[in-house]
Design a protein around this nucleic acid. Structure first.
Length: 429
RNA sequence: GUGAGUGUAGCUCAGUUGGUCAGAGCGCUAGGUUGUGGUCCUAGAAGUCGGGGGUUCGAGUCCCCUCACUCACCCCA
């Protein structure tokens, strides 16, 4: 056997699965705690739905294929188009605003690099049908809660919050035509990846006049909302929105995780207002999560307008961050009790004991191949079982089995009918 | 698609100018200890040196091709 998982696809061994399950649990519990309901959609989607949102170019970057009837399909590269499809189909029946989340496996055909596989799981969480800043805040607070529950602190990671409308107002004040702003935003998103000189070149290519570029670059000098306010009209809606958002974040208890960052604009065309990305504070990794407000997506897909805000949070980068941050990820024990025998003849009694313990809700493993004291205890040790119950000839004569505490090494003979109670009396740590 | 780096035991890796270079640690198996695990000691199993071709008396080592993995770019989740 020389096969390995196809390029970019991942195997999940038990230890990997332990993390994945824990992560999914946190995502699910956090979403529920904030009143979001779970949905799902097929991994295979209509190619047309995906291209209508992302453009024909995306075909080169996804697993696209035809089924045996010639239907053009694709493995979903993201779940937002499906979300729009689901909401649009039952629009009149869904209670708005809809607060929905999903954990979706998504695929993308591209070269792999750090933090990027060809397949990943992404927690998507959205509020559809509300244009209130409270909705933005609720989404951000949920994201921050998830980071906190995973063991990260504001010293480890922050959610950088920007506002496209704010940059838009600034560009407008400088004199950049509105129809040019999106191109300029896309260039500004490259900040940090390329040098400022290259950035200016890209601005020129985007049609920005030479004397305007330096003014655009000065936008990056903005450090806080006060700096920003100085560059836009006093009655700026974008500033007012951000101030409200940060005030509310403090009241919601997630303020320390949030920070204003003028440079966050996101590389996607459809965002319309608040945008955000979470990074580890040392900026050693890609964005942990990213999202924002996308009030025009529905209409761009041919639906009546519907405001929305949400984010995507993948499983790959967060794993890297948690590993590097040294957050305690020790998983719970797989096994509470290991049951074994000193002699093959005693499996009937051992199975009866194991059955009783399982009926009581304990996680019980049988030391199938490890018969005899040496092998049994060594096996139990490696399985990380805190208790061992074994059937031994001497004790069995008086209808007892032996309960051993693997942490202390102490053990005692216990009448078989009392074994469950004996374990319950001294629950493992 | 472009560029760079790395492929030697299950894992992490060493291997000098081509000539006992098929190795170490960890892990695994067995024994010391057939009624007692973790520590310790001893022994053992295990590798077509990623694959193919070439140069050479001789290739893990040099050359070519290829595959895989990693990183960066591109693109974005």
């Amino acid at each position: 056997m020389s096969f390995q998982a196809p390029r970019g696809m991942r195997d999940f061994y038990p230890e990997d699965m332990a993390f994945r399950t824990r992560l999914f649990d946190v995502w699910t519990a956090t979403a529920r705690a904030h009143g979001f309901a779970q949905y799902d959609a097929p991994i295979v989607e209509h190619l047309d739905l995906l291209t209508r949102k992302a453009g024909e170019e995306i075909i080169e970057q996804i697993y696209a294929f035809q089924d045996k009837s010639g239907r053009k399909l694709a493995l979903r590269p993201e779940v937002t188009p499906s979300l729009v499809r689901l909401v649009a189909a039952r629009r009149s029946r869904i209670v708005m605003p809809a607060k929905w989340f999903t954990i979706a496996q998504c695929f993308r055909y591209e070269r792999m690099s750090k933090g990027r596989k060809r397949e990943h799981f992404q927690w998507n969480l959205d509020i559809i049908g509300s244009d209130s800043i409270i909705a933005d805040l609720e989404v951000l607070a949920t994201a921050a809660d998830a980071l906190r529950t995973l063991g990260l602190t504001p010293q480890d990671a922050n959610i950088h919050v920007g506002n496209r409308n704010l940059v838009g107002e600034m560009l407008h004040a400088i004199g950049v035509p509105d129809q040019q702003q999106l191109d300029v935003l896309m260039v500004l998103d490259k900040r940090g990846k390329v040098s400022d000189e290259v950035l200016v070149e890209m601005l020129t290519e985007a049609g920005v006049a030479a004397h305007v570029s330096p003014q655009i670059m000065k936008i990056f000098d903005v450090r806080d909302l006060e700096d920003a306010a100085a560059l836009v009209p006093a009655d700026s809606p974008a500033i007012r929105e951000l101030r409200t958002l940060f005030d509310l974040a403090d009241r919601a208890g997630v303020g320390p995780f949030l920070r204003f960052d003028i440079a966050v604009v996101r590389g996607l065309a459809y965002y319309t207002g608040i945008v955000f990305e979470a990074f580890d504070t040392r900026r050693r990794f890609r964005a942990i999560l990213g999202g924002g407000r996308y009030d025009r997506l529905f209409e761009s897909l041919g639906e009546p307008p519907l405001p929305a805000v949400g984010f995507g949070f993948g499983d790959v980068v967060i794993k890297e961050v948690l590993d590097k941050t040294g957050v305690d990820q020790s998983p719970g024990k797989d096994v509470d009790v290991c049951v074994g025998v000193f002699d093959h003849a005693h499996w009937p009694e051992a199975l009866a004991v194991a059955g009783a313990l399982r009926a009581d809700g304990l996680h019980v493993d049988l030391a199938l191949g490890a018969v005899g004291p040496n092998k049994l205890f060594k096996y139990a040790d490696r399985r990380n079982a805190s208790r061992v119950v074994f059937v031994a000839p001497e004790e069995l004569k008086s209808d007892c089995v032996v309960l051993r505490d693997m942490t202390t090494g102490s053990q005692a003979a216990v009448p078989i009918p009392d074994i469950t109670a004996a374990i319950r009396k001294q629950p493992p740590d």
